[in-house]
């Protein structure tokens, strides 16, 4: 589903060159639940951003669902990202001015789907994370765990093949973290979605199919 060959990311300024990722090779199969671990600043999030087409690699090739992306800012890449990939962020990134249901609908706004159908799909996604009764709430009225569940609903509402989660349990206590993790595991099993998760938590990483470790931008395990 995701094939990374010799992916490097180098940040250059006038005086300094920083290597964030160095020749990463990864082949992630469809339906796999992979976790990436490593110390802060080792390039985990950069790698996830590259997989999600949010950032461009400096070198190397990336195939997403068999397709190579050339122009990262084009309309077709936006559409590709919209259809294939769902994101879950550590700090939730819910839009505070929109109700829960409107937040979940967001990916569907950029598809040609009727308003009624959008509502139906968003309600379904909220049901699946156990938040059917929070549709009309605003994010500020929810707990951290609930916010992350809304973010998961938003990530899955468009039924993407790939879900990229950047420390989804990082801002949650262990009980809420476990709840979120259980949802992700179920999602992976039931829908067959490929999930790549960046985490600091060894306990969470052990629940996934495979663990990749990064150190100073290089793959060590």
């Amino acid at each position: 589903m995701l094939q990374l060959s010799n992916i490097s990311k180098i940040y250059r300024t006038k005086t300094i060159e920083t290597t964030a990722l160095h020749q990463i090779n990864l082949d992630i199969k469809q339906g796999e639940f992979l976790s990436i671990m490593g110390p802060s600043g080792c390039g985990k999030s950069t790698l996830l951003n590259i997989m999600g087409l949010l950032d461009e690699p400096s070198q190397g090739h990336l195939l997403v669902d068999g397709q190579q992306i050339n122009n990262y800012s084009s309309k077709s890449t936006s559409r590709f990202r919209n259809e294939k990939i769902g994101f879950i962020f550590q700090s939730f990134h819910l839009i505070p001015d929109l109700k829960v249901i409107d937040n979940v609908e967001l990916p569907l706004l950029y598809r040609s789907i009727s308003g009624k159908e959008r509502r139906r799909l968003a309600s379904e996604a909220l049901d699946s994370v156990g938040l059917a009764n929070r549709k009309a709430h605003f994010p500020s009225q929810l707990s951290g765990g609930q916010k992350q569940r809304v973010a998961i609903a938003r990530a899955i509402v468009g039924r993407p093949k790939i879900i990229l989660a950047d420390e989804p349990t990082g801002n949650l206590d262990s009980v809420m973290g476990d709840e979120v993790m259980d949802i992700l595991i179920n999602l992976n099993k039931e829908s067959g979605a490929t999930i790549v998760m960046v985490t600091h938590d060894e306990r969470m990483a052990k629940k996934t199919d495979r663990l990749v470790r990064l150190y100073d931008g290089a793959q060590v395990a």
């Binding site: 309309k75 936006s78 990202r81 994101f87």
Partner: peptide, 16 residues
């Protein structure tokens, strides 16, 4: 700006 980031991540094009 982070709202813009989220919208773009979920498929909004520049024209959106």
């Amino acid at each position: 700006s982070s709202e813009i980031g989220v919208r773009k991540a979920f498929g909004a094009s520049s024209s959106h």
